[in-house]
Design a protein around this nucleic acid. Structure first.
Lengths: 103, 103
DNA sequence: CATTTATTTGGCGAAATAGCCAAATAAAAA
DNA sequence: TTTTTATTTGGCTATTTCGCCAAATAAATG
């Protein structure tokens, strides 16, 4: 059956959370295990406040989870299925760039 | 091995193409088979030029392919793996909304 | 309690995206 | 060849997103 507008909207919200180079880089790094914000800041190379906002966006989308231990907050993937997600994306990623126009 | 920035960038471009409710709705509809632009316009309920721009964006990202036959242009998914992609997204989609803040 | 360290929040300007309208294009039909 | 139909493109404004800075918060340490 076809997807309803609200279904597409919920799905799009999750996809959107991963549709940014820095956010994706972060999620990819978390495949190796949890990391604190300052580790991820070093990885991304942006202002910590910027990284923090990316993280909280992914968190409220349900993609990441986090836990505070001492002074640090450790983020991790909320779902192991992110690995499968990435594999699907790679299958859809064209080897060579596409033209803008059809035909 | 960790993903490089350029890898994340390429992947993010594909993900971005699907990170919009209308575009996702279109891709979902195309799981049933190819459709012409006017069919998709009716589905989405926006101006045809808007729909056309969504389509060409998805096309240049490599997500859709198209073919002109007579007066119509028929769009289809470029890769069957979109179905798997959707399944992964659904696994990541939280049942209940998340808070903005951690902890 | 004051200070330090890690992180988040608020606010702002800059850049990107979205969606409409009108005009351009291209194939088919008259 | 003129007209009609389907689609794309250009241009414009409105909205959203991005990323920095400065200020706020919260736990740990002195």
């Amino acid at each position: 059956m076809p997807a309803s507008r609200t279904t597409s909207q919920k799905r799009a919200a999750v996809i959107k959370a991963l549709a940014h180079p820095s956010r994706l880089l972060i999620a990819e790094a978390l495949l190796q295990g949890e990391r604190c914000v300052c580790d991820l800041q070093e990885l991304v190379g942006a202002d910590m406040s910027t990284v923090s906002k990316h993280l909280s966006l992914m968190r409220s989308a349900g993609v990441l989870a986090c836990e505070k231990r001492g002074l640090n907050i450790y983020y991790r993937l909320a779902c192991v299925c992110f690995a499968d997600f990435l594999q699907c994306v790679d299958q859809m990623t064209p080897a060579r760039p596409r033209r803008k126009s059809c035909c």
